[in-house]
């Protein structure tokens, strides 16, 4: 059950770096640019370019590489699963066959591409949450969505929900681990058997977890009310968002890089 302790997905790591001190809005837009770029990439040069770009921004952020790797750990299974599906179910020129299983050249190609693409998407999205606190992220999103407020879009409410969800990830992971240990101590076997049996064994963990989540939500609402929270109207911020020249520069460079990679791919494509 140790894996739950190692999950850092969505957890902010405060470090004094230039990336951390950027306006959250510029980081959110830059991340969207990166994700779009990674999504469109097809050739090895493109993946290599985005990979080097990621290494560069990680080094500027001063976050340890091991932390970046561990932050993507929860989705490794999903990435592996997607790659395997593409490996065996893509039609094309066979390179290996064993019974009904057949690996094609196109399948191999797709498996590597999809695996790399998913991994990079997770890494870029994770990098945003590692370098931006949930409150900053929520403030940034609220600000970006604020033009939609006039059409009744609940920008503040969505941002607050996201802040709380991110804040409670570690708490709920600890809670899950505690319940799992309690069930194991009472004879539950969560690690053996096929997927269906494991899923069934997990129900006694999920039921108390849901009860706890609702109880916590109720207590949290009371605590927020006691601290004068009445919604977004009239709220101020300890650090008001400030868009600087650096933010414009970072965003422009990211955009130029994405365009450059895209053009390079088009020129090198046969």
């Amino acid at each position: 059950m140790k894996f739950l302790n190692n999950m850092t997905l969505g957890q902010y790591v405060p470090v004094d770096s230039q990336i951390h001190s950027l306006d959250p809005r510029s980081k959110i837009i830059a991340t969207i640019v990166c994700l779009t770029g990674v999504f469109l990439v097809r050739e090895p040069y493109g993946f290599l370019s985005w990979g080097l770009f990621f290494v560069l921004i990680v080094s500027v952020s001063r976050l340890p590489g091991s932390l970046i790797i561990s932050s993507s750990r929860p989705v490794w299974i999903l990435i592996a699963f997607t790659s395997v599906i593409h490996l065996f179910f893509t039609k094309g020129v066979p390179v290996f066959s064993w019974g009904i299983l057949e690996i094609t050249r196109e399948g191999l190609d797709m498996a590597v591409r999809m695996g790399l693409r998913l991994l990079m998407l997770v890494l870029f999205a994770g990098f945003l949450t590692l370098t931006t606190s949930p409150t900053e992220l929520a403030d940034g999103l609220e600000s970006l969505f604020s033009p939609l407020k006039r059409f009744g879009f609940p920008a503040h409410e969505l941002a607050m929900m996201m802040t709380i969800a991110l804040r409670f990830i570690p708490t709920l992971l600890n809670e899950t681990e505690r319940i799992m240990k309690a069930q194991i101590a009472r004879g539950a076997d969560l690690d053996r058997g096929g997927p269906l049996r494991r899923l069934r064994a997990f129900i006694p963990v999920l039921v108390p977890l849901f009860v706890i989540v609702f109880q916590r939500a109720d207590d949290l609402a009371t605590a927020m009310e006691a601290r004068n929270y009445t919604g977004g109207e009239g709220r101020t911020r300890m650090y008001p968002l400030r868009w600087s020249v650096t933010d414009s520069g970072v965003l422009m460079l990211t955009l130029l890089f994405a365009i450059a990679v895209s053009l390079l791919e088009k020129r090198l494509m046969p």
Partner: peptide, 12 residues
Amino acid sequence: FQNPENQIIAAV
């Protein structure tokens, strides 16, 4: 309140 976990809203 009794349980600090249920009254801390922000992550920092």
